[in-house]
């Protein structure tokens, strides 16, 4: 019972320098993602944009929101939320992206009685 084993509140107070550095990095990355979008990189554009967004979001979560110092339970919850979002997007996308996959010609395709007779 973690709640009862420590009566102290262990608080991690971040250094101002850390916060400002993260802020600086975030601003730079914002500039970068905008700049990259002007380059013609084909499908790489979206990948880079998302990679930058993910790294920015991770920094905000890890430092500003203090995930770094939270319990592993909180970390688990954060991961669970993202995994569930992933489930929703991936499975739905799997439908849309395979909906029109080509059918291979099947041996029964020319059977006048259809595919189900012997």
């Amino acid at each position: 019972m973690s709640a009862h084993t420590h009566a102290h509140l262990h608080v991690h107070i971040p250094k101002v320098r850390t916060l400002v550095l993260v802020w600086l990095a975030l601003i730079c990355l914002t500039g970068m993602t905008t700049a990259v979008s002007y380059l013609e990189l084909g499908w790489m554009n979206i990948v880079i944009a998302l990679l930058i967004a993910v790294s920015k979001a991770s920094m905000v979560a890890w430092i500003f929101m203090g995930v770094r110092h939270t319990t592993s339970l909180t970390k688990l919850f954060v991961v669970a939320g993202l995994v569930w979002l992933g489930i929703m997007i991936l499975i739905t996308a799997s439908d849309y992206n395979t909906r029109n996959w080509t059918y291979q010609p099947m041996p029964w395709a020319n059977n006048p009685a259809g595919g189900l007779s012997k």
């Binding site: 009566a7 102290h8 509140l9 262990h10 608080v11 991690h12 107070i13 971040p14 250094k15 850390t18 770094r68 110092h69």
Partner: peptide
């Protein structure tokens, strides 16, 4: 990490 760990709040 280099952050300060402050035991905030007394035992009581």
């Amino acid at each position: 990490m280099a952050d300060t760990v402050v035991p905030a709040g007394p035992e009581t």
